[in-house]
């Protein structure tokens, strides 16, 4: 009986998390769209060339640099910031799962989820 009750709590938490994710996607899209409009208004008539990979300038390669380029209100900077918000959404989901497993006192899954979180943070922040 208590097992049944517990499972329902699980789904409620998941539902809360997934709604949060959906709003996150809407926010990220709105930021990208705003940046898109600014960018096209300024550079819409110039010509793109993506045939050869040259890589993005260093201001779009790290979390700190992207955030500082948003302050300059550059269209591309705003788009990159929106993309960063988007990448952060699944990571936020994992963070919330750590909390939810901790509330349930499920030690095994707190450890498992922390491992996943560490890998994600390494990928986003841990490189030079």
């Amino acid at each position: 009986m208590s097992e049944e009750k517990h499972k329902f709590g699980d789904t409620d938490m998941e539902l809360f998390i997934s709604r949060l994710l959906r709003y996150g996607v809407i926010i990220a899209s709105a930021i990208v769209l705003t940046g898109c409009i600014i960018f096209l208004a300024r550079h819409g008539t110039s010509q793109p060339d993506y045939g050869k990979f040259v890589g993005e300038p260093s201001e779009f390669r790290s979390v700190v640099d992207i955030i500082s380029s948003v302050m300059k209100m550059s269209g591309k900077g705003l788009i990159e910031f929106g993309l960063l918000v988007l990448i952060a959404i699944p990571i936020l989901r994992v963070v919330l799962s750590v909390i939810s497993f901790a509330v349930e006192k499920d030690r095994n899954y707190v450890i498992i989820t922390l491992i996943v979180l560490a890998l994600l943070l390494y990928s986003l922040l841990g490189q030079q």
Binding site: V32, L33, Y50, P90, L120
Partner: peptide
């Protein structure tokens, strides 16, 4: 989403995530 986020971080650092390409692809696919 979690799997893709794990590699997206690395692509971002390598300069593979272009704003002008990614914006249309993201909004269109969504």
């Amino acid at each position: 989403g979690v799997t893709a986020a794990a590699s997206a971080g690395i692509y971002l650092h390598r300069g593979y995530i272009d704003p002008a390409i990614s914006m249309s692809v993201m909004l269109g696919a969504l």
